[in-house]
Nucleic acid binder design. Structure first.
Lengths: 332, 332
DNA sequence: CGCGTTTACGTCGTTCGTAACGATA
DNA sequence: TATCGTTACGAACGACGTAAACGCG
């Protein structure tokens, strides 16, 4: 049994039992993986995968057990390497971020920009996905960190650190009836219009859906997307009333869109940074956290990951504060 | 980085930084370890050990971090091998038991005898130690299981399973004043005599010491040992009153010793089996548990180790019941 | 016939043990 | 001088990639 064999095993399992694809992933040749897998199975004395003909069919129950432990081993080996890289002062590496489109498009750009200036040799890989998939990818170990939002409890699956609070924004075309109204609309009034919002409202436990339900309303979501830009585009096209994160509203949107403050209508949300408890983070991972949310300190993050602390986090600022602070920095 | 290098690293750390001794332990040559250590340090880019001249002086802080992760890796690799051995139906292996002298001498023999009949190819290594050292050895990973006693909470450091309850026995020579008394002595009466007991009573938190203290007595422990046989020998020699575990009292002791029932005087104790949560146990480890305490079932133990259960254990019998049951089995 | 896996083979790198050397107390 | 670690060297092994063969849809 070697670390290489276990790495190959994981790659095969994570590539849908396709050895050729797995070989690609680990930068090796397919016969190499085939052989190593065979050797591992010979050493252990049982099949890790069931086969149909020559193709791998499924992981055997025993193989599943081995796979789980192999993941621990390979993760810890990676931790040792990360530890060493940090100690050497290495500033190159990969940073895989699993997050939603809104964060990737409207929140992260300045932070990632600053990060790349500080760590030019870090390659950043953004994986925008739907809410559910983000945490899924993260839990499968495909990402170093996840950035997700909830309107309540912190997300499970790792160490969750609050980055900032935000509110929803309601967007309508400038000539929309709601834009001319004298006062902010109620939920009931909003619910009369076709709504445009994120894909995640399709889930029954969506906080937006629940807010309407609590007011006895059952709005029609006429258009959903993961992509806030698309939602804005279709609001412009007159499809209805857009409900999206305030971060997605830019100054230039005011030219043809009217922003209704939904602060009191809809529950506030928190954006969370989620780190894997089983991984030693590289310095630039924590640097990114600090860059997004200045109230965070990487030493606290390291302590929390080591499990040494009850993990009390500084109160997160609102997005409005963060944006104002960023503007004043740019002005200076 | 290879599994071998990490195994060598652990061996060196566990051999007091003596590479020659470590080489012995892993059945390799000393230059082999030296070289692998050097290669690992070269790959990681920093020293795992600080050196004075050529000798290893201490583990560096970074080395400590690496060492901890290396232990996880090597443990999990061992788990995979154990898993495979079980699946193959392998019935050979090593069984290292950390326990006290009393358990090793008076409780385990029948169980280990039966185990060896069932698993002739399992080599059993008994490590009798003082109470504190037992758990220490166990936590350092030198033993597959520990068997210890407490008179209250289960021991920490692993998955603790209650085996049986037992009481203390008070032994005096047949011609001792207490042997002729009409009734059982009180703690105050006992405390008038020099006492002979286990080494563990020297610790201030000892349950025996606390029992006397609660009665306002401060007895003199004139003789202590880890070895119940020795205590009995010195009781015979007239040094005083022996207080030991009832398991240590044999039928033939009645010839020249008088047994006082201390059931109501001194608090009861529980013997616990302790398993490491990070290790997949071989079948014979669980078989031993079943052989000592028939109320246990290895499937429950496996489930509890997998963390799937709130770990409620069947009520442990008393040692008296266990011994009676064993006698009736022998008679049949 | 394409896709994916296995088998065969040659090369290269690595590990390991023996033996000699060096440093330290 | 004894103990312990390093260096040197040769043999054996193992990993890896290329190329070809095999099975299957």
């Amino acid at each position: 049994m070697t670390l290489t064999q276990l790495r190959y095993l994981i790659a095969i399992a994570d590539s849908g039992l396709n050895i050729t694809a797995a070989a690609e992933r680990v930068h090796a040749t397919q016969p190499g993986l085939s052989k190593q897998l065979k050797q591992l199975e010979d050493e252990l004395g049982f099949q890790l995968f069931s086969r149909r003909g020559k193709s791998l069919q499924a992981i055997t129950p025993a193989g599943q057990q081995v796979l789980e432990r192999a993941r621990v081993i390979v993760t810890e080996a990676g931790n040792i390497r990360a530890l060493a890289a940090e100690l050497r002062g290495e500033e190159a590496g990969e940073l895989v971020i699993a997050t939603t489109h809104t964060q990737a498009r409207f929140v992260l750009p300045p932070a990632i920009g600053a990060l790349k200036r500080r760590y030019p040799d870090v390659n950043v890989h953004l994986q925008p996905h739907g809410d559910a998939l983000v945490l899924d990818m993260f839990e499968r170990g495909r990402a170093d960190l996840a950035i997700v939002s909830t309107s309540g409890e912190p997300p499970a699956g790792g160490l969750a650190v609050p980055l900032f609070h935000w509110r929803r924004a309601v967007l309508v075309p400038r000539d929309h009836a709601l834009a001319r109204a004298a006062r902010w609309p109620s939920l009931a009034e909003l619910a009369r219009y076709p709504l445009l919002s994120y894909e995640s409202v399709l889930r029954p436990e969506s906080s937006l859906r629940r807010a309407f339900a609590a007011a006895g309303e059952a709005p029609r979501f006429a258009f959903t997307s993961r992509d806030a830009d698309l939602i804005k585009t279709y609001v412009r096209a007159g499809l209805g009333v857009g409900i999206l994160a305030e971060m997605a509203v830019l100054a230039e949107d005011a030219e043809d869109l009217h922003l209704l403050d939904a602060a009191d209508l809809l529950p506030p949300c928190t954006s969370w940074l989620v780190l894997r408890r089983d991984r030693v983070p590289r310095g630039y991972v924590l640097a990114l956290a600090e860059l997004i949310a200045p109230q965070l300190d990487r030493r606290d993050l390291r302590r929390a990951l080591a499990g040494e602390e009850p993990a009390r986090w500084p109160a997160p600022p609102s997005w409005r504060e963060l944006a104002a602070r960023a503007r004043s920095v740019r002005a200076a």
